[in-house]
């Protein structure tokens, strides 16, 4: 009979916070790059063909990284409450970076949409965690 300790060892990968956080960082980072490049591509006039090819390549790579991160997160199952709070902080950090990037590119107002959304998610995760801890 397999022992409980062996079973726990077999769950190590699924429970690994580092692996989950790495996937969240990849998802948010790639999402920010995709959003930034996408906005620039859609709003910049008269982009040279070489720049458009570069943007398309960046978008493809970004979408590929996002898809892989989503797959890995799904494989590990749903995030625990504490992990979701960490994901909220990561998403907020990338939303701020995205907003700065968009502001530098002359689309500051657009960037302001992402930050409140990320902060709202962060607040939601905090409240959900606190609700669970009170049980």
């Amino acid at each position: 009979m397999i022992s409980a300790e062996e079973t726990i060892a077999g769950l190590h990968d699924s429970l690994s916070l580092r692996r989950r956080v790495r996937s969240v960082v990849q998802l948010c980072g790639a999402g920010a790059v995709v959003a930034l490049v996408g906005v620039l591509w859609l709003t910049e006039d008269r982009l040279p063909a070489r720049a458009q090819v570069g943007f398309a390549a960046l978008l493809l790579v970004g979408l590929g990284v996002m898809a892989r991160a989503v797959y890995v997160l799904r494989q590990h199952g749903h995030l625990f409450a504490r992990d979701r709070v960490i994901a909220g902080w990561i998403a907020s950090g990338f939303a701020v970076l995205l907003a700065i990037g968009l502001a530098l590119a002359g689309h500051g107002r657009l960037g302001l949409l992402f930050v409140p959304a990320a902060l709202a998610y962060l607040l939601f995760t905090h409240l959900a965690k606190r609700r669970l801890e009170r049980r």
């Binding site: 009979m1 397999i2 022992s3 409980a4 079973t7 726990i8 769950l11 429970l15 916070l17 625990f80 409450a81 504490r82 992990d83 965690k129 669970l132 801890e133 049980r135």
Partner: peptide
């Protein structure tokens, strides 16, 4: 056990291990 389950849901990895230790044998 309810308290252990809640701790595990919060993200306490040791609580998950506790659940496995407590319920592994019945499941097996």
């Amino acid at each position: 056990w309810v308290a252990v389950v809640v701790r595990a849901q919060v993200g306490d990895r040791e609580a998950v291990a506790e659940l496995v230790r407590g319920w592994h044998e019945p499941v097996w």
